[in-house]
């Protein structure tokens, strides 16, 4: 079944996180007014993307960049048709028409630019079709792209407090690293300001304190932490506080410590219903 929704309610960053952590394979279709885009993933990593009116085959792209001749393109297409298993990018590499590094660089640039624009959409319907694969002629990257990198770059283009406030409602929240950010951190490249914030994260300081220590504005710190958070590198937690006081003025009670025997009786009763 497809996952459907609107990026107004469930942001593109959130969806990329879900795709990454869920090792999803399939296509995310996005539509807004007369614009549309398709992002294809394999086991949680981006393999290709295109926007309406900007879609191109891998050979068209390389010809435009003077990295491939028309003759080579035709030859590769024939070879691909004869070898049903491989996509066109793989055929180009097998025939050594282009190096792996160069193909990766060109396709990554094209695909990233297709995706970054989408972070600016304030809304748009999305539909994720599980296991849907791209056309074999699509510009499929030899090495799939980790989404953390996309999230960080996409978040750099966000300038709306509203979206950030949804995840970071207060500057009194403490920032801490997740248990094992190791592999996740590898795909992320940080700008100088982001490093300044990253280096201040210690599981004790609040966003307000990080802002004070780095000299960055609270908005900038929140935006940067929002990026880390969305990429799954950090968590924000509340500072431990005394139990809140109820509207009635009484302190809110801890949940009662119940006896095992009582719980077992309820379990037996519900099982028998």
């Amino acid at each position: 079944m497809a996952l459907v929704g609107n990026i107004r309610d469930f942001s593109l960053s959130d969806f990329l996180y879900l795709v990454d952590r869920g090792y999803k394979t399939g296509c995310l279709h996005l539509n807004r007014l007369d614009e549309s885009a398709s992002l294809y993933f394999d086991k949680g990593k981006l393999i290709t993307a295109s926007r309406k009116d900007h879609a191109a085959s891998v050979t068209d792209l390389l010809i435009q960049k003077n990295k491939l001749t028309s003759l080579q393109a035709s030859d590769a297409l024939v070879a691909q048709r004869n070898d049903g298993g491989a996509n066109l990018s793989q055929v180009l590499l097998q025939r050594e028409y282009i190096s792996r590094e160069e193909l990766q660089k060109i396709l990554q640039q094209y695909i990233e630019e297709s995706v970054y624009v989408l972070f600016g959409w304030p809304d748009g319907e999305f539909r994720f079709e599980q296991n849907q694969r791209p056309e074999v002629t699509s510009p499929i990257m030899p090495v799939p792209l980790p989404v953390e990198h996309l999230i960080m770059e996409g978040v750099r283009r966000i300038d709306e407090w509203g979206r950030i406030k949804d995840r970071i409602p207060s500057n009194d929240l403490v920032v801490k690293f997740v248990e094992q950010p190791g592999d996740k951190a590898k795909g992320v490249q940080l700008a100088a300001e982001e490093w300044r914030v990253f280096a201040r994260i210690n599981g004790k300081d609040t966003l307000a304190e990080i802002s004070q220590k780095t000299g960055l504005s609270e908005f900038d710190v929140s935006r940067i932490v929002y990026g880390f958070l969305t990429a799954g590198l950090v968590d924000v937690i509340k500072k431990p506080k005394p139990l809140p006081v109820m509207a009635t003025g009484r302190p809110m009670a801890e949940p009662p410590r119940v006896k095992r025997g009582l719980v077992s009786r309820i379990i037996n009763r519900i099982r028998g219903m």
Binding site: R257, V258, K259, R260, L262, V263, S264, I266, I267, I270, R271
Partner: peptide, 14 residues
């Protein structure tokens, strides 16, 4: 409800 009760059971005391 049963799954919730199993969670409660784990946190309950003898």
């Amino acid at each position: 409800l049963l799954e919730l009760l199993y969670v409660i059971l784990q946190q309950s005391e003898e």
